[in-house]
């Protein structure tokens, strides 16, 4: 095993998939000569040439649509949209075309397309460059939305997404690119993940923390802190937002009796709302306290560091919510001795 960054895991996996399958090609703004705004595609133009690593004009609707059309004829394009904010320019192609073509034509053409795109705030990029709008895509039948939180998951999930015959929105996060984790030395040894499965990444007995992408990582940190206090938190990493693995969520909450959802998007109508509804539908009788959600403050994210930091969910805010939820259960917790 080697320790690699999330960025490196993505890059090595893209390369491996391109070597494996001639039909895999990359498209996006600045992915070739510039080697990617976040350097995920570093070195790939040099290795594979401009036929397979295609710099596009700044035309999200155009190049995402073109990728869909290419996928209809059997290519497996992996599109990079520089940030998820810009995916809004391609919303019609993603929602009205990529997601519809398989069903609308009675299963005659599938769209094996991957759209990689990072969300996330915290970089002082201001209101239009810091959003988390994965919900828009997670809402749409016909799309699959995955949101891995570690380099190993990112690699396994990207392989699965590329080999899948449906359009997959692959959510990354700016704050994750430099995070590190273990990956087999030979990237070929990484098994493709199963899309649609959440994972209990840390077993526990007192409370369930449910997160995805960056917040799954924050949840793991918070679980460490709580462990030092003698509190056993179980962490569920959703990994897939659509389909949503409701069974794993509910099974966990049935074990722990309470839950906090950690999400980087806005609270109202957000991903956490669906998780909370799922918990009450599947574990109502097991709940000792209301489900709480930790989510971004409902403002256009400001530039100033003080305001930005205050608005974003963090380990601190998650800890507060976990403690409040545990208190609301009325359980007498044994303090750590």
């Amino acid at each position: 095993m080697a320790t690699v960054t999330y960025r490196q895991a993505l890059r090595d996996t893209l390369r491996a998939e391109m070597l494996r399958d001639e039909n895999v090609l990359l498209m996006g703004e600045e992915i070739g000569l510039f080697e990617g705004s976040y350097k995920i595609t570093e070195g790939l133009l040099k290795e594979f040439g401009p036929r397979r690593v295609r710099d596009t004009p700044i035309a999200e609707e155009g190049f995402v649509g073109a990728a869909i059309g290419a996928a209809m004829l059997g290519l497996r394009p992996v599109v990079e949209i520089m940030t998820i904010n810009f995916s809004l320019l391609a919303l019609d192609q993603i929602v009205n075309h990529a997601a519809k073509i398989y069903g609308m034509f009675g299963g005659q053409a599938s769209v094996p397309l991957v759209i990689r795109t990072p969300g996330g705030g915290g970089q002082q990029l201001g209101a239009t460059h810091s959003q988390n709008v994965e919900l828009f895509y997670a809402f749409i039948p016909g799309l699959k939305v995955v949101a891995p939180s570690t380099p190993a998951e990112a690699s396994a999930m990207l392989k699965a997404a590329i080999r899948d015959d449906d359009p997959v929105l692959f959510l990354e996060n700016l704050a994750l690119y430099n995070t590190k984790g273990e990956l087999p030395d030979a990237i070929d040894a990484v098994e493709p993940a199963e899309i649609g499965r959440a994972a209990v990444t840390r077993p526990g007995t007192d409370i369930t923390i449910i997160g995805y992408s960056r917040m799954a990582r924050v949840a793991a940190e918070v679980a460490d802190t709580l462990a030092a206090e003698g509190i056993s938190a179980e962490v569920v990493d959703l990994r897939s937002l659509r389909p949503l693995d409701r069974e794993t969520i509910v099974a966990s909450v049935r074990r722990t009796g309470c839950a906090v959802v950690a999400e980087d998007d806005w609270l109202t109508y957000g991903i956490g709302a669906e998780i909370a509804a799922t918990v009450q539908e599947g574990a109502f009788d097991w709940l000792d306290a209301p489900v709480r959600r930790v989510a971004m403050a409902e403002v256009p994210l400001p530039y100033a560091k003080s305001l930005e930091t205050a608005a974003l969910p963090s380990a601190g805010s998650l800890l507060t919510a976990v403690r409040a939820t545990l208190a609301a259960t009325g359980r007498a917790l044994e303090p750590a001795s």
């Binding site: 398989y102 769209v111 016909g142 699959k144 015959d165 899309i195 499965r197 389909p243």
Partner: peptide, 11 residues
């Protein structure tokens, strides 16, 4: 029958 071409868990 035609939501997904590749069957998926949790649909």
């Amino acid at each position: 029958d035609y939501t997904y071409a590749t069957p998926v868990a949790g649909e």
